[in-house]
Simulated scan of single mutants.
Amino acid sequence: MIMRVMGEGQFEVGDDHLNLLNELDAELVTAVDSGNEELFRHAYAKLLAAVKQYGTPLPLDSLEPSELILPNAEATIDEVRELLMADGEGVIPGFPE
């Protein structure tokens, strides 16, 4: 799966890491639902760090379509909440929990 982190580029994440990312996504949903900014910051930082750790960066001149677009690390809780509400499945849709 190709994921774009706004302002940081694209990362190709193998299927073997999608379950972990889905778990982190569930944590993020819980944090956003709580409205707790500190909990949200921690959960979102963990998700972004995992995408970067387990994903392989694509070349900057690559124009691959991204299957998922994540806001940058400075995104607000409201921006991420809007993203979550777009499909009701978290930021990583379509993967089993």
Results as ranks from 00 to 15, higher is better:
Leu24Asp: 01
Glu27Ala: 07
Thr30Asp: 14
Ala31Arg: 09
Ala31Trp: 01
Val32Ala: 07
Asp33Phe: 06
Ser34Glu: 06
Gly35Trp: 06
Glu38Leu: 09
Glu38Ser: 13
Leu39Glu: 11
Leu39Gly: 04
Ala43Gln: 01
Tyr44Cys: 03
Tyr44Met: 07
Ala45Trp: 10
Leu47Gly: 07
Leu47Cys: 11
Leu48Lys: 03
Ala49Asn: 13
Ala49Ser: 14
Ala49Phe: 11
Ala50Leu: 08
Val51Gln: 00
Val51Tyr: 00
Val51Asn: 01
Lys52Trp: 07
Gln53Tyr: 14
Gly55Ala: 04
Gly55Tyr: 01
Gly55Leu: 01
Thr56Cys: 13
Pro57Ser: 09
Pro59Ile: 04
Leu60Cys: 10
Leu60Phe: 11
Leu63Gly: 08
Leu63Ser: 09
Leu63Val: 15
Glu64Phe: 12
Glu64Gln: 12
Glu64Arg: 13
Pro65Ser: 05
Ser66Pro: 12
Ser66Met: 11
Ser66Arg: 08
Ser66Asp: 14
Glu67Trp: 11
Glu67Tyr: 12
Glu67Val: 10
Leu68His: 10
Leu70Tyr: 03
Pro71Gln: 05
Pro71Val: 07
Asn72Val: 13
Ala73Gln: 14
Ala73Val: 15
Glu74Trp: 07
Thr76Ile: 11
Thr76Arg: 15
Asp78Gly: 10
Glu79Val: 02
Val80Glu: 03
Val80Gln: 04
Arg81Gly: 07
Leu84Thr: 05
Met85Pro: 07
Met85Asn: 15
Met85Val: 10
Ala86Leu: 09
Asp87Ser: 08
Gly88Lys: 06
Glu89Cys: 09
Gly90Met: 00
Val91Tyr: 00
Val91Ser: 01
Val91Pro: 00
Val91Gln: 00
Pro93Tyr: 02
Phe95Glu: 04
Pro96Thr: 09
Pro96Lys: 15
Glu97Gly: 06
Glu97Ser: 12
